[in-house]
Write a protein that binds this DNA or RNA. Structure first.
Lengths: 472, 472
DNA sequence: GGGTATTTGTCCGTATGTATG
DNA sequence: TCATACATACGGACAAATACC
C-alpha cells in the first residue's frame, strides 16, 4: 500500500493534520476498505519525507476517532465502521463459563460495570504466574500473613502514595478478596450499631453489606459538588457517625467531589470522637478532564479516613484482590477483632500481583487502558453531540460511564430503557441505584457504560438509541 | 510511576515550579529513591492536564540542579543525591516470603496445623494453571457466579457424594475463600442472635468468628464418643439453637463422633424449628482405623445440617478455597441475605482447581498423601510405645496429630511444653484450644502434629521428648 | 523446526516555533 | 523583552510479532 498524499509544508493546517484528513477521507469514501493495512509509520514517513512522529500523530488522531485500529508489532488497520453484527463465538474447548452470552436479543449493552479485557496482558500474566509457581517455592502454599504478603502491601502502599496521595505504612494495609468482603471486615472492625450516611444514589453492594451487618443507613442527597455535607448535621444524615463516599468518581452519578466539600467532610469527621469517613476509590484510575484531586485520605491529618480500593476495574474483576487502608487508631481494633482471620486471597495470587506491580506492568497497563478508555470516551461523547438538544450529559469527566438526562421529560426512565431495548440496545435507568427507588426525584436519566464496547459497537449503539428515542 | 501532584493554576508560583518543588521534596524525603524512573514528560503532562513543555520545564530545572538525570529515549531518573536518606532496599530478586524460618532455636515443630508439601504436585499444578490461562479466555477475567463456577461446584458435589456420602446438588454449594470467610457468610445467612453450642475444646478460629458476629457461644463437654448431646437439653448447651461440630475428627481432641451420638444430634436438631448443625469436615480425608463414617450431612433427612469443607489440609492452606453446602431451606435465605456478594475466589483459581479435580489429580494426590501420612503416623505411634507407661495416647485414629496425656500428672501442661522447648522441640498444650483455658479440667495434655515432619524429624523429636520428660 | 534478523507499534527525550501577558 | 505555556516535529531505544534461514 503506497499512499499518495499531497503534502504542503505551509498548506492548510499542520502536516500531521493534512495526513490525518487525507486518510480519513479515503476511509470514508471506501477507497480504504475495512481491515486493510495502512503503511507503517516508518514507511509512510519515508515516503513523505517527514519525521515518523508526524505520521504517528496523524495515526493517533485516526485511532482516537475510531477510524483505525492499532495492533502492536503488526500494523495499523482500517476499522470496521458501520458494520453488521459479528457473531461472538463462544470460548470453545476448555472450561466454558455460563451465562456469558448476551440474552434477549441485546446487541449493544452499555453496561456501566463492564471493562475492556481485549488489551489485558494475558501473556505477561501467564508468564508471571508460571514464574511464581516454579522453583517449587513451598512456602507459597503455606499459610501466609493474615493481612496479606508484606511485600505486596509495600508495593500497594508506594503506588497509593505516588498515584493517589495516600499516606500509609504497609502495616496499615489489609489485603482481601474484593470490596464486598473488605466492607464486611470493616464492619467487624468498626463494630457496634453504626449509623452510616451514604450518597444517594449510591453503590448498592456497599449498601447491602452495611445493611446485612445490621447498620442503619441514612441516604444523603447530592449536588454538583458531591454529597451535601451540610445534611450530616441536622438534615437527612442527622445522627450518622460514619460516611461512605466515592469522592474521585461517585457511582453512579459520576460526580467528582469538590475540594471544599472534601474539607467539609473532614471537619465533620473531626468534630466528634469516633466518626469515620469511608473513601471508596474504586474508579480513580480514569480521568479525562480537570486536575487530579488527591484522595481524601491524603488530606486527612487526624486519622478519620478509611481508604478502600480494588484492582477490579484496573486489572480485572475476577482476580478478586482489594485492599483496605486503616488509620492507625483502627489497627488495634483490627488486630483485636479480626486479626485472626486468615487472608482471603491465595498466596500465589498475591505474588503474581506483586510481580505485576513491581515490574512495572501495572503502570504500563494503566497507561494503555487510559488511552483506550479515553478513545472510547471521546467517540461516545462525539456521538452524543446529536443528543444534546434533547438530553443533557453528565459524569463525563471521569470513570467508565456517562449519564444522559432527558431534558424535556418526553420519556420516563422506563420508557427510555424499553425503547432502547426494542432496538437491541441496553441502557441502565438511574432509579436502580437509589436506596429507595421511589424517592428518585431526578428527571429521567439513564447510564451508558462504554468500557467493554468497541468503537463500532458504541457507534452502532448510538445509532440505535437515536432511532429509539426519535432523535434527528 | 504515576505522580499525584497537587496543582493550583493560581497557586504559589507558576505551574512548572509547583511540579519542580513537589518532585524535589519527594526526592529529598526519600519517597522517590535514587535510580527510580520518573513519569515521562508526556505521561505527566497528560495526568496533570498541562502542556508537555510545562512538565519539561520542571524536569529541566531538576536536571540543572542535579536531582535527576536524563537518558535520551529512555526517561528521567532520580539521581544519587547525598546519602542522607537511608536507601530503602528494593525487595531483591524473587519475592521472598518472610518469617518462614523456624525461630527461637526450635528444631522439631510438632505443629498440629502443618501439612506435608514435599509431595505437592507442583508440576501438575503449574501445568494446569498455565493451560487455564492460555487461549486468552477473556471470560475468565470477568465477573463470575457469586456462588462459584458451576462446573467446579459440580465437581465438588460429586466428590463429596462419593467420598463423604454428602448429598447435594451443585446449586446448594457456595465456594468461598477459606473456612473463616465461609463461617462469616454463614452467620449472615443464619442471621439474628443465634446461640451456638460448640465442642470444648474446639477450633478457636470458628469460635472467634461466631463471637465476632455477635453470637452467644455455649461450650459443651465431650467424652470419648464426641460432644455430649445430652447437655444440649438442660446442660451446658441449654438454650442453643445451633451446634458446631467436627464429627469426623474433632479438633483438637481427635475424637471421631460415634454413630449413636450423631443420631442424637440429628434428632435434637429436628425437635424444634430453626435448629441447625454445622458440620466442619476440615480433616476427613485421613483415617487410619475403623470404618469410614459418612458425613452427618448424609445421615440427615430433614435438611438440618450445614456442611463446610476446605482444601486447606488436602491440597494446601494457601490456595484459600473452601465450600459450604447449605440445606435447601437455607438457600433462599442465602440468596436474600448474601446472594449479592461476589465470589471471594478468583475465577482462574477456581478453574485450576476444577481441572485438578476432574482430571483425577486430586484423587491421586489424596491417595499418595494418605500413604505418606499413614507412614508418618505409624512411625510416630511406634516411637510413642516407649511413652506408654507415662503417657496415654489419644486421637490416633484419624487426622494429622495425636494427643499425649500425662498419666501420672508428673508435669503440668506448661512444664511439658517448656521442657520440650529446651530440647528444641515444640509441642502444643491442650489448654489453648479451650474457650476458657482456665476451665480446662483435662489432665496435662499436649498435641503432636506430624504432617509437616519427615521420618527423621519425628524420630529426632521423640528422642528429644524422651530426654525432656525423663522417659527411659 | 529452532534460532536470528527484520519489521512494527510504542515509548521516550529533545528541539524549535508560536501565542500571550 | 522576557517568562510562561502550548503545538509541532525529530529520531533513538525497546519489546514483541513475524519472516526468514
Amino acid at each position: 500500500m503506497e499512499l499518495m498524499i499531497p503534502l504542503n509544508t505551509k498548506g492548510p493546517g499542520p502536516m500531521y493534520e493534512q495526513i490525518y484528513r487525507f486518510i480519513k477521507e479515503e476511509i470514508r469514501q471506501g477507497n480504504l476498505t475495512a481491515g486493510s493495512r495502512l503503511p507503517s509509520t516508518r514507511v509512510l514517513a519515508e515516503n513523505l519525507k517527514v519525521s515518523r512522529s508526524t505520521t504517528q500523530m496523524a495515526y493517533e488522531q485516526l485511532l482516537s476517532e475510531g477510524y483505525i485500529d492499532s495492533e502492536p508489532c503488526r500494523g495499523y488497520y482500517v476499522a470496521q465502521i458501520e458494520e453488521l453484527v459479528e457473531v461472538k463465538e463462544a470460548p470453545a474447548g476448555r472450561f466454558v463459563p455460563e451465562q456469558e452470552e448476551k440474552g434477549n436479543g441485546i446487541d449493544v449493552d452499555f453496561s456501566p460495570r463492564g471493562i475492556d479485557l481485549d488489551r489485558f496482558p494475558f501473556q505477561i500474566w501467564r508468564k508471571i504466574s508460571r514464574n511464581v509457581l516454579v522453583d517449587d517455592n513451598r512456602a507459597l502454599f503455606l499459610n501466609g500473613d493474615p493481612q496479606g504478603e508484606y511485600a505486596l502491601r509495600q508495593a500497594i502502599g508506594s503506588y497509593l502514595h505516588s498515584a493517589r496521595g495516600v499516606r500509609c505504612r504497609p502495616d496499615q494495609i489489609i489485603i482481601g478478596a474484593g470490596s464486598e468482603y473488605l466492607l464486611m471486615l470493616l464492619s467487624l472492625i468498626l463494630g457496634g450499631d453504626r449509623v452510616i450516611a451514604m450518597e444517594n444514589p449510591t453503590y448498592k453492594q456497599a449498601y447491602r453489606v452495611f445493611r446485612s451487618q445490621g447498620y442503619q443507613v441514612r441516604p444523603v442527597n447530592m449536588d454538583r459538588s458531591g454529597i451535601m455535607a451540610s445534611e450530616l448535621d441536622g438534615g437527612m444524615g442527622e445522627g450518622a457517625d460514619t460516611v461512605y463516599v466515592m469522592p474521585s468518581h461517585q457511582y453512579p452519578m459520576g460526580t467528582v467531589m469538590s475540594v471544599r466539600r472534601r474539607q467539609e467532610l473532614l471537619s465533620w469527621a473531626c468534630a466528634k470522637e469516633g466518626r469515620y469517613l469511608i473513601e471508596d476509590d474504586y474508579d480513580s484510575e480514569f480521568r479525562y478532564k480537570g486536575k487530579p484531586i488527591p484522595a481524601l485520605q491524603g488530606m486527612d491529618q487526624n486519622g478519620r479516613v478509611i481508604y478502600i480500593g480494588t484492582f477490579s476495574k484496573s486489572i480485572a474483576p475476577a482476580i478478586r484482590i482489594g485492599f483496605l487502608v486503616l488509620p492507625q487508631e483502627l489497627m488495634m481494633r483490627y488486630r483485636e477483632k479480626a486479626g485472626f482471620f486468615s487472608s482471603t486471597v491465595s498466596r500465589p495470587d498475591q505474588n503474581i500481583l506483586y510481580q505485576f506491580l513491581t515490574e512495572g506492568h501495572y503502570e504500563r497497563h494503566l497507561n494503555r487502558m487510559r488511552a483506550v478508555y479515553k478513545g472510547k470516551h471521546d467517540i461516545l461523547l462525539g456521538g452524543l453531540r446529536d443528543f444534546e438538544e434533547a438530553f443533557s450529559i453528565g459524569g463525563e469527566y471521569a470513570g467508565l460511564h456517562v449519564l444522559l438526562t432527558d431534558r424535556k421529560g418526553r420519556y420516563t426512565e422506563e420508557e427510555l430503557e424499553k425503547a432502547a431495548g426494542k432496538k437491541g440496545i441496553r441502557v441502565y435507568g438511574l432509579s436502580r441505584y437509589f436506596i429507595h427507588p421511589e424517592h428518585n426525584s431526578y428527571p429521567p436519566t439513564v447510564l451508558l457504560g462504554y468500557a467493554s464496547l468497541s468503537a463500532e459497537e458504541i457507534q452502532r449503539g448510538l445509532k440505535g438509541l437515536k432511532e429509539a428515542w426519535g432523535i434527528a
